[in-house]
Amino acid sequence: MKVLNEISQALQNGDADLVTEKAQEAISQGISPSNILNDGLLKGMSIIGVKFKNNEVFVPEVLIAARAMHFGLNILKPILVNTGIKPFAKVVLGTVKGDLHDIGKNLVGMVMMGSGLEVIDVGIDVHEDKFIEAVKEHKPDILALSALLSTTMAEQKVVIDTLIKAGLRDTVKVMIGGAPVTEQYCRDIGADAYATDAISASEMARKLV
């Protein structure tokens, strides 16, 4: 369908206004919201994702695409709620104790949101107990832990250990990320998944649920 292609294209160009306009046009044409989401918005986002991995586009392009995505979702949200369609998954996201790094975590958050995930950002320098509380309160599908320092990556393990102690480990998948983190480390501390960048994190999250 032409209009879905147009949405995808506008999103890749970061043209939020055009995305809004085209999304409304698609709705008035009677196209189902899940169709608009999957074949329009998410398709555009995944193309950006591929280009990002191939170094064809860089973070700024991803960000303005995510922003356009946000605009599109705002149009779809009321209808999606009405039709009973739920977000793919719910993610609690935060940077661990002793670490103030915000950008990477925010990037992950916004790309996840842009991919149709519900994201609850609990912030930076988050104490393990606060993560547990958030898991209890929001009952997320995924807990995503960011650590940017070699001195703070150990905190990711602390959070997982605390989850086990609280008997909550099985209720949630744990994803970790951050500059010093590796696949090996992920396995060592008993996390479920590791991602190298915001786009893969978002894809990984969708794969996990």
Binding site: P60, L63, I64, R67, H70, D102, I103, N106, L107, M110
Partner: peptide, 17 residues
């Protein structure tokens, strides 16, 4: 920066950060 992030102005937020 928080304000920009909350508004969905990601690029502004990132640049400012």
């Amino acid at each position: 920066t928080k304000e920009y992030f909350a508004k969905g102005e990601y690029l502004e937020a990132l640049l400012l950060e």
